Amino acid sequence: MVSTVQNTDVKQKDADHAVVVAVTSRAVFNSRAEDDSDVYGESVAFPLLQSLQKINERLLEENPAESLLFDVILITTDRQQQQQSSCIISSTKHHGLEVGRFCFSNEEDFTESLLKNSVQLFLSTDGNEASQVSQKGVLSALLDENSASCPSEQLRVLLCGDTLSQSDASLALLSRQAAQNFSAQLGKMRQRFGMFDSPLWISVVTSHGGREACSDSLRALRSHGVSVDEAYCLAGAPRGPILSLLRPHFLLRESFSGLQD
């Protein structure tokens, strides 16, 4: 059973042009009410939603008729949280988060609800959920506790270049198409802003290989209209220090395999 509630406090996005991002409610809220109220506290995805909202605000400042915007869906699969749906909705409004829709679903049907809502990126703290969604051809990424310390004024996306230039026969065609579509839309958004003071920052890192591997990754991205702000070639060095320096909201990896045509 799937129930979708539209947030009447938020202007709905153009369904033909918006970039639909679904985030699990447990990643946004910690499900513990603040001061015995009906408002939940913040969790790891809270800064991410604020950064998506900042991009929308900046885009509309530049062009009030802009339709290439992030459309955020909050999805709940936890039965207890479904029973507390009013608290989730009131918490979203209390914190001023721009969420267009609330989707309440059981664990068996939640992937179908993502497809029904044309979700282009699914974000969760649950690895099983992310894997299940990927198998359905929806681009997904994992969030962790480090996401809670990410900036809220700028969305930082890190692409793993090791898979950008490599073919992966085991990856479904739908997953490749989803990755290409999302990266192209992300690239279009980035082009809306100048080189400096952009609310969207795209980086790519290659853990293996030398300059050629990094160059291949950059060419693959550029062929889909994506110009990155930073590129790092680690040549076998650990990726941890770069991650702690860049502090990306999320890392997109396997779903970008076979990005080249």
Rank of each mutant, 00 (worst) to 15 (best):
residue 124 S to L: 00
residue 135 Q to D: 12
residue 140 S to D: 02
residue 148 A to M: 11
residue 151 P to A: 12
residue 146 N to S: 15
residue 147 S to Q: 07
residue 127 G to L: 13
residue 152 S to M: 09
residue 150 C to Q: 04
residue 128 N to E: 13
residue 151 P to H: 07
residue 142 L to F: 00
residue 125 T to G: 08
residue 153 E to A: 08
residue 152 S to W: 01
residue 129 E to H: 14
residue 131 S to L: 14
residue 143 L to G: 02
residue 137 G to Q: 11
residue 135 Q to H: 12
residue 153 E to S: 12
residue 120 Q to I: 05
residue 142 L to S: 04
residue 132 Q to I: 09
residue 126 D to Y: 10
residue 136 K to A: 11
residue 133 V to G: 06
residue 139 L to M: 13
residue 144 D to V: 03
residue 144 D to I: 07
residue 142 L to K: 03
residue 136 K to M: 11
residue 132 Q to C: 13
residue 146 N to D: 13
residue 130 A to E: 10
residue 123 L to F: 05
residue 136 K to Q: 13
residue 147 S to P: 01
residue 150 C to D: 08
residue 132 Q to H: 13
residue 139 L to C: 10
residue 125 T to W: 00
residue 149 S to D: 14
residue 140 S to T: 05
residue 128 N to C: 09
residue 149 S to T: 14
residue 142 L to Q: 04
residue 143 L to S: 05
residue 150 C to F: 00
residue 142 L to G: 08
residue 128 N to V: 12
residue 142 L to W: 01
residue 132 Q to F: 06
residue 139 L to D: 01
residue 129 E to F: 15
residue 152 S to L: 05
residue 153 E to Y: 07
residue 149 S to A: 14
residue 143 L to M: 07
residue 131 S to M: 13
residue 151 P to D: 09
residue 150 C to K: 02
residue 153 E to V: 08
residue 147 S to N: 08
residue 132 Q to W: 00
residue 141 A to I: 03
residue 146 N to W: 08
residue 123 L to P: 05
residue 134 S to A: 15
residue 124 S to D: 06
residue 127 G to Q: 13
residue 122 F to T: 00
residue 148 A to C: 07
residue 125 T to V: 12
residue 148 A to R: 14
residue 147 S to L: 06
residue 150 C to W: 00
residue 131 S to E: 14
residue 135 Q to N: 14
residue 129 E to M: 14
residue 130 A to I: 13
residue 139 L to A: 10
residue 123 L to I: 07
residue 147 S to V: 13
residue 128 N to A: 15
residue 120 Q to H: 06
residue 123 L to S: 01
residue 150 C to R: 06
residue 137 G to H: 13
